[in-house]
Amino acid sequence: MNASATPIPVKIVVAGGFAVGKSTFVSSISDIDPLTTEAAMTKASEEVDHLGDATGKTSTTVAMDFGRVALSQELVLYLFGTPGQDRFHFMWDELVRGAIGAVVLVDTGRLEACFPAVDYMERAGVPFVVAVNAFDGVLRHHPEDVREALDVPAHVPVLVTDARHRAAVRDTLVGLVRHAMTMATADA
């Protein structure tokens, strides 16, 4: 077996509220048509889920869409879009494990939809950037207003993106990786 022929996988999580543009963001940069994987609720997570009935049985599955970007011969980036509701947080634990970090997408029309994601990433110590998706190129709020409204710490970048455009998505990912590097340097 030639082990060097297998690239190293890295991943980035794309989080945010309902219909904020997560799937669009992933598909704009993915080499493949985004795929969907389903995960069933695990035992431990039943405690945090409120759909489960009294006996702890639950039929909840979570669908995640994801894309794949070849960064070089040796490196593959996976982008996982994840549902934003609190009850899917069990999936986030799994998603952020070993991840470079997260992009939290924000629709300025519904800022509050991304609270859970910002909150989660902060508490989990996951490097993240907040990316304001300028729907139709219209930015209804200045990024710094968004920072203030969401109470995003000063060291976390608040960027403007456009989920439909590959270059904008790439720049957002670059912003996240730079931020992750800063955090890795600070930790070391």
């Binding site: 960064l71 490196l75 980036l77 890795a184």
Partner: peptide, 18 residues
């Protein structure tokens, strides 16, 4: 573990060459 600095640099290079 999170990816280390060296790996992050490679990711950055890769993204910037897209």
């Amino acid at each position: 573990e999170r990816p280390d600095l060296r790996l992050l640099e490679q990711v950055l290079d890769g993204l910037q060459s897209l």
